[in-house]
């Protein structure tokens, strides 16, 4: 499973990376977590609001930082 956190480097994006790590730990899933800061790469996903979470190429949410539990739920439900 590949998880990509999109954000141009603001504090919200860093928070999201932390929570995504916590969420995968909660689910005991091995995931490849990548942070994408390049605006061009971010725009290619078609999102307008950062931070966003992409799982295996699919945008799970954008423009918000959900709780660790909600992130875990979303990852689990899209697996």
């Amino acid at each position: 499973m590949k998880l990509q956190v999109l954000g141009t480097g603001c504090s919200r994006c860093r928070t999201l990376v932390e929570r995504v790590k916590e969420a995968t730990a909660l689910l005991s899933t091995a995931a490849d977590i990548e942070k994408i800061e390049d605006i061009q790469a971010i725009a290619r996903f078609g999102i307008m609001a950062t931070p966003a979470l992409v799982m295996d190429g699919k945008v799970l949410f954008s423009g918000r930082v959900p709780t660790t539990r909600e992130i875990a739920e979303l990852i689990a439900s899209h697996k």
Partner: peptide
């Protein structure tokens, strides 16, 4: 209050 979220929005509007 953060230019890092304004720029992706700007790009989205332009697109």
């Amino acid at each position: 209050f953060c230019s890092c979220s304004a720029v992706p929005l700007f790009v989205g509007f332009v697109q």
